[in-house]
Design a protein around this nucleic acid. Structure first.
Lengths: 151, 151
DNA sequence: GTACGACTTCAAGTCGACTTTAAGTCAAGA
DNA sequence: TCTTGACTTAAAGTCGACTTGAAGTCGTAC
């Protein structure tokens, strides 16, 4: 299959497929002239990649899983760890959701006067929802690189 | 207070404070020489910002909330919407967690032979966990910019 | 025989939230 | 007086996952 065909079937832009190949996540079976040719098996690989991404694995992690063996061999411990990680995220998100829900219907004149809201603020400052909360879009910050005004 | 003092108390690097000021999230009350001076009230603002970030608001959204009025006036509808959004995330993460958990102890020789796993793959391909799942680190992709190999 | 469309490469750009760096300012202590 | 050390600025760099652009290569339909 030409890359365009794969793109159409998998619902993924051709540029992404090239990128994935470059990263070693998929492989083309050869070339016809310049053009990469893919085996239909790549569609399964792409589904796997999509799943991995949805589960929160990075492309590098996924590459590691699909990497060495030609036959898929996913480490069950890795899955389990990711499940635990998700579990922690779920707990944090749940706490946050409930807090927001409360704040939304709270009768206090200002949110600042609502004790629950203040508690939430404190937790946030303390980092209780640290890196990884609420659809965190930032790439897992390393807290404190900068000396926080060292004495 | 000097910026270093605020940094220490809030546990946020000075560079971040400058950045926040530039973005209009906080304000300094003046200068002593070159140095910004902050009122202690900025600490409360920062706590609010930390909370907003943890809840998944972007800095621009937070700026919008704190923006116009000098007195904090958060739109309750906005909180409610974010709570709903979190709720959806929680559901997706939960499904994913359960799927991973299952896959981790599944007895099928290869994951590919487990029907539940395959179902999860299909869902992922179909985008059921679309943008916003599992600590998604990417900035809310716009699906399909590239024509998927138009006919 | 040439125009077209689908492909190719490589480099650079994007997004958000910061951080880092280089070069400069300033008050205070030895 | 000179040196710290905490601040200042503006500009550039970072991270991950891609996308975009420019310039070139094919096979095929006209």
């Amino acid at each position: 299959m030409d890359i365009g065909e794969v793109a159409k079937r998998a619902g993924v832009p051709a540029s992404t497929l090239r990128y994935y190949e470059e990263k070693g996540l998929i492989r083309s079976v050869g070339r016809r002239g310049l053009r990469r040719q893919f085996s239909p098996r790549v569609l399964e690989q792409l589904a796997l990649i999509a799943l991995g991404r949805s589960a929160g694995f990075s492309l590098d992690e996924i590459a590691g899983m699909l990497g060495t063996a030609d036959k898929l061999q996913i480490d069950r411990r890795q899955l389990s760890e990711k499940a635990d990680e998700l579990d922690r995220s779920i707990r944090r998100l749940t706490a946050m959701r409930d807090g927001l829900r409360h704040a939304a219907d709270c009768s206090a004149p200002s949110h600042l006067e609502c004790p629950k809201f203040r508690r939430l603020m404190e937790l946030a400052v303390a980092g209780a929802f640290g890196d990884g909360c609420a659809g965190r879009k930032t790439p897992a910050r390393r807290r404190r690189t900068d000396p926080p005004a060292a004495t």
